[in-house]
Design a protein around this nucleic acid. Structure first.
Lengths: 137, 137
DNA sequence: CATAAAACATATAATATCTATAGGATTTAT
DNA sequence: ATAAATCCTATAGATATTATATGTTTTATG
């Protein structure tokens, strides 16, 4: 049920980028230093985020990353799915990566019902929370 | 955000044990067969559940496992924590395994606020759901 | 134009975890 | 006595995580 460091670092960096959304690009080094993240590791994460069209980049001096969209239009769900995969506790209730689980009768499975509810609750919270929501007190 | 196979198998086996709560012990082999679980792997899981005081065991022919308490008194939270560890998405919001995360200001961290809410929601669902709830339609 | 700052791209090391299998030891019903 | 079952520990095999390393490319700036 835990987020990977990759996911956690990515979210922290994006939260930082959201805070600096007005203004020029922010370098990996600055992001890493401010948020206590190993900088070479963060570099890879930023690349994933770029390929996932969550950030844009600018090369060269004074280059760096900035959000590809305004903070209100980037949900935590999108980021977590990109960096950490599906939100479901078990694959038989996943929207994005369904797989049967091997229980005798899927429809009658009580465990499945509960895990479906957990997935729905988590997904709803993550889909309704944007990077902008992370900033407001 | 996903449960391990260990956790999933353990829950499925316990759901089965709850269904057979009236009646004698159920062997690992029966549990494994009925639920499509590798039987030697399940053996280890049952041992963990035994040491965690969630099941009792009886050795010898017609031996096996039965719940240590009635199904209404075993929550999914207890089982998942035992087999898969803390429920929190990040350690800085964990009740059972708190650790600071490295963000500049924990109190002001928006990400932390959201993850705290996710943890609380998941924990509440898991703590309020018992093995008995898995059986009722 | 030279330099340095930065992203970009891969490779790979180090570690951990997950999943599962194996080999036996112990208990106990029949 | 036998066989069914738990119990215990080790370890294999696979995969994922986390991180470091090495270098290439782009580009702003002096």
């Amino acid at each position: 049920m835990k987020l990977s460091k990759r996911g956690e670092y990515g979210l922290r960096a994006l939260q930082d980028l959201a805070a600096h959304y007005e203004g020029g690009p922010v370098s990996t080094n600055d992001l890493a230093e401010r948020n206590n993240i190993p900088s070479r590791f963060l570099e890879q994460i930023m690349l994933i985020l770029k390929h996932g069209r969550i950030v844009h980049s600018k090369k060269g001096p004074h280059g760096g990353y900035h959000l590809a969209r305004s903070p209100e239009r980037i949900t935590l769900a999108e980021v977590v799915r990109l960096l950490d995969g599906p939100l479901s506790p078990i694959s038989c209730v996943s929207e994005t990566a369904f797989e049967p689980c091997g229980c005798p009768d899927m429809e009658a499975c009580g465990l499945r019902r509960v895990m479906q509810a957990v997935r729905d609750a988590v997904a709803a919270m993550m889909e309704n929370t944007t990077l902008a929501d992370l900033l407001s007190k």
